[in-house]
Design a binder for these strands. Sequence first.
DNA 1: CGCCTCATTGAGGCGCATCAACATGAGTGG
DNA 2: CCACTCATGTTGATGCGCCTCAATGAGGCG
Lengths: 243, 243
Amino acid sequence: MDENRRVATINGAECKLCEHHLCSFLPDRHKACSHSFRQLLRGDRLSVDDGSCLRFWVVLSGTAALCTTLADGRRQIVELETPGDFTCGLSAIDGAQGWIEALCDCMICEVDLSQVAGILRNDPQFALDMFRRVHNRLEKSAAHIVALGRLDSMERICFFLSEMARRTGRLNGRQARVNLPMTREDIADYLGLNSETVSRILGRIKKAGLTVFISPTDYVVPDLEALERRFPITPTYANKEAV
Amino acid sequence: MDENRRVATINGAECKLCEHHLCSFLPDRHKACSHSFRQLLRGDRLSVDDGSCLRFWVVLSGTAALCTTLADGRRQIVELETPGDFTCGLSAIDGAQGWIEALCDCMICEVDLSQVAGILRNDPQFALDMFRRVHNRLEKSAAHIVALGRLDSMERICFFLSEMARRTGRLNGRQARVNLPMTREDIADYLGLNSETVSRILGRIKKAGLTVFISPTDYVVPDLEALERRFPITPTYANKEAV
DNA sequence: CGCCTCATTGAGGCGCATCAACATGAGTGG
DNA sequence: CCACTCATGTTGATGCGCCTCAATGAGGCG
C-alpha cells in the first residue's frame, strides 16, 4: 500500500468519525502516535502476517475483507468488514497467505497497541471489550460455516443479500436499499461459489421479484422478510451483550 | 439429558482431571456449587439456548460437537470439541436450533459463572483468559470456513484426518495413531458432505496408502506430512499467546 | 436368531464449475 | 468525437463431482 495515503494527523475532529473507541484504551501520551487513518484503494492489501494481535483495524467507510489465498490461487473471504467492523490479524489462518483487502476504496483506522501492551494486560475494560468483539465475530463465523456447509447456491446468495441489507442497507419498513461495493467475484469468494454462478443466481432472484437491481452495485429489496424466507437461518447482526 | 448422570461431587481429586482452570476464577465459597462433572452418552444433547454466555463446558474425555440443525433437518457441525476444548453457548447461531451433542460417550465439566458475573467483570485475568479462548476458536473457524468454501471432498477429508491426528492422536515421528470417536455421518456434517461420500473418499485415501484403517473408528497415518501435502492449508492447532 | 445401526458400494441424476463468447461501461489517447 | 483497451458482468454449452436413492454387508445386542 502506498504509504502516502496514510492520513497522519489525528485530531478530535477526525476521531469523531470513528465511534469505535479502540483508541480510548490508549493512555493520553500515546494517543497521537499509535493510531492513524489510512485510505485504501480497491485492491490494496494490508499484510497481517506479523503474528501479533495488537494491531487492529476499524473500517470507517467502504468494504474490506479478510482474505485467504491458497497456493493454487483459490481465494476465500473469511470475514467481510463493513463500516464499524473491527478486525485483527489473528482471524487469519496460518499456512496460507492472509491479508486484509479493500474491496472498494475505503477508509480505515489502524490502532497499534503493541507499545502499551503491558498497561492493557491489566485493564479489565479493555480485555472485556476485546472479548466481546471477538465473540461477536465468532457468532458470525458460525453462521458462515453453516451457509458454506449446508446451503445451496440460491440460499447462500439470499443469505448474503439479506446480510448486506441488514448490515449496510437503508431500511424503510420491509424495504431496503443497499449498496453492494464489491464484484461478483468477491461475492463468490465469500460464499464459496464462482462468479458465473453468482451472476446466474442473481438473475433468478431478480426474476423472482425478490430484488430489483438498479446497477450491478445497487439493489433494492422490496420485502426483506420474503427474501429471508428463502434460507433457513435467522441472521445474527446485532451485537449482543456478553459476560 | 438424564440428570442422574450429573456427578455432583467436586473435590480436589476430580478437579485434577481437569487442567483447564475455568473454575479457578470462582471465589472459594462458590467453588463447590458452581461447577460439576457430567457424563454424556452418545447422542445426548445440552441445550445452549439460554443466550447467556456464562455457562461453559470443558470436554474432559470423548468428543462433543456444537451442532446446528436447520428446519428441514440439515445438520452442520460448527465446532468439534476434543478433550481440553472449551465452548460456550454463544458460538451457536440464532435462528436455528443449536446444541452441544456428544458424538461418543464423554465426560465434561460444566462451569456456571452467572452467579458471580459481577466479580468476574472486573477481573482482568478472567477477561483475558476468555479472550484467548474465544480468539483461538476464531482461528479454527477461519480454517473451517476455507475448507468448506474452497476445498474439494478429498482435500476436506485429508484436512480432517490430519486435524484429528494432531488434536487427539498419538504421534510417533511422522506416524500417528488416531481414534476417531464419531460416525461417518458426523464427519460428513462437520465437512459439509454426506456420509456416502465420506465413506468413498476414505476408501480412496486408504487405497492411496495415506492411512491404514484398523477399524471404522481407528486409523494409523504412516506419514502425516504426506497426508498434509494433499491439502493446501497448514492447520493451526497450537494455542497461541495473544495480547 | 432377529433386529438395529453403521458402513460400504453401485446406479443415476442434478447442481455447480469450467470454458468460451459476447455485452457493457469506464478510462485513455488520438 | 471515435477507437481502443481493460475489467467486469452476463449467458450458453458441456462435463464432472457430489448427492440421492437403494441394496448389501458387518458388527453389536437382547
